[in-house]
Design a protein around this nucleic acid. Structure first.
Length: 427
RNA sequence: GGGGAGAUACCAAAGCGGCCAACUGGGGCAGACUGUAAAUCUGCUGUCUUAUGACUUCACAGGUUCGAAUCCUGUUCUCCCCA
């Protein structure tokens, strides 16, 4: 293993450090292999790009020669973290929860090294220790050490005092605190990390360990990814951007970074979400000062490749070039069928037989059905010149005719709503 | 327990017997400009027949009226004040 990075310094220049407990850096510098953990909430069957930043914390931690622990919240997921939530959550049933945990585990595994290195990562599930603890025992082991007013002071609780918070969610920080304690006792875990919204929960753990066994442990958080105007990243029209290719296709994933990142934030994302080193990023910054889109492509390619692999990423790029480049019908016809099929794989698609198309009364009906919007909407779009078929604008009059489309490669029709929404009808 | 206020489209918020498919703002969508940007400007934003048209909407259920989101009755829910 070659030169290891200084973890804290690395985070600092990347702008990934929000809060940090005193003495953390000294401790890390003084110890070769430290263990740190981050908890992930199994509320969905896939991680999303909001988890990417915290995942990078663990990645850098491992690159610095330390051992990361990934905690999936099998137990805490049954409770619900009030942080950042304005409403009480609905419980997930156990089958869903288990399914979510399993799929998240797989995703997490691809970002860190679990074997073949001297500081392998490991995954734990807090259900494994919580399942054996009874309520009485928990109150005696954890609850006794933390003061109510201390818990009430947390932001996550404060914000919910008006709208209401159940005892269950109120207790969440105690459970998370206990996780830290347990990992400290059983895995020598010294550090907890997370997004800055987790700071309150994390410090409860530090407090618990200090009160219970008098030991000092550490914590740090990274800023949540927000847009230059302060609003949250991570959602687009369709909702969350997931890491699971089944839920968000690599094409859509790639497009997200192209479309939804503001100029002012590109560099921030390069620092936080890629592993490019400082010098490289600085060079890129200068090189692309006048060409933010070029830089955006580098960002998108880098992230998409890491999440979905090189091959999937290249297809996403090919699809993007074909759809958003200066391409014409000719370019489509000139692309061989196999390539076209691969390229289109990630683009939203609807299967519809040629016969069904030919039998539609007109384009309006057809498009309303295929795009899942009302005919009124289609008409409005047509009036506003917002619909294209095979890269060609269509008028309202034409749209009322029976569809007699030209099938690209004898099997595709390319429908477009506005500039950014494509849909392929495949025979 | 007593008193008061309110429930309108994605959100906020007008309307208080006909001119209301419902002012306005935000959001969203589209067009122009552009960089698959931002900012700006324009249009649209209940559904449906080739629309100066029809139909279904203003918490829910009934009623008064030629006619109601607007008036009356009951139901459900929300909020505020006093105890």
């Amino acid at each position: 293993m070659s030169q290891k990075t200084n973890f804290i310094a690395e985070l600092q220049w990347r702008g990934m450090l929000q809060d940090i407990t005193p003495n953390t850096e000294n401790y890390l510098l003084a110890h070769q292999k430290v263990k740190a953990y981050i908890g992930f909430d199994p509320t969905a069957s896939s991680l999303h790009i909001g988890n990417l930043a915290t995942l990078m914390l663990l990645k850098h931690f491992q690159l610095a020669g330390h051992s990361p622990i990934v905690l999936v919240g099998g137990a805490t997921g049954m409770i619900g973290d009030p942080s950042g939530k304005s409403k009480e959550r609905v419980f997930l049933d156990e089958t869903t929860l288990q399914h979510n945990i399993d799929s998240q585990k797989k995703q997490l595994a691809q970002f860190l090294d679990f074997e073949g290195v001297e500081n392998p990562a490991e995954i734990v599930n807090n259900y494994d220790w919580f399942k054996n603890i009874g309520f009485i025992e928990f109150l005696r082991e954890a609850g006794k050490f933390i003061n109510i007013s201390y818990m009430m002071g947390k932001d996550s609780v404060q914000k919910r005092l008006e709208t209401g918070i159940s005892f269950t969610e109120f207790s969440y920080q105690l459970l998370q605190g206990f996780d830290f304690y347990w990992l400290h006792q059983n895995k020598e875990c010294m550090l907890q990390m997370g997004g800055s919204d987790q700071w309150g929960n994390i410090t409860t753990g530090i407090e618990l360990i200090k009160k219970k066994i008098g030991k000092e442990v550490f914590a740090l958080t990274c800023p949540l990814l927000t847009k230059a105007d302060g609003t949250k990243y991570g959602k687009s029209e369709g909702g969350n951007i997931w890491l699971d290719p089944q839920m968000t296709s690599p094409y859509k994933f790639y497009q997200y970074w192209i479309k939804d990142i503001e100029d002012a934030d590109i560099i921030k994302f390069l620092r936080v979400l890629t592993l490019l080193d400082r010098e490289t990023i600085e060079n890129l910054t200068t090189e692309y000062a006048q060409n933010p889109n070029g830089l955006r492509r580098i960002l998108a390619e880098n992230i998409t490749t890491r999440v979905h692999g090189k091959e999937a990423c290249q297809k996403a790029i090919a699809a993007s070039n074909l759809l958003y480049g200066k391409s014409t019908l000719h370019d489509f016809e000139n692309t061989d069928a196999a390539t076209l099929e691969e390229v289109f794989a990630g683009v939203p698609q609807k299967r519809l037989s040629k016969q069904a198309v030919a039998e539609s009364a007109n384009w309006v009906d057809l498009m309303a059905e295929v795009m899942q919007i009302s005919k009124s909407d289609i008409r409005r779009l047509l009036k506003g010149n917002g619909i294209s078929i095979n890269q060609q604008k269509i008028s309202e009059n034409d749209a009322l005719q029976t569809p007699q489309p030209k099938w690209i490669k004898d099997q595709y029709i390319l429908l477009q709503k506005g500039k950014q929404y494509y849909l392929i009808v495949a025979a």
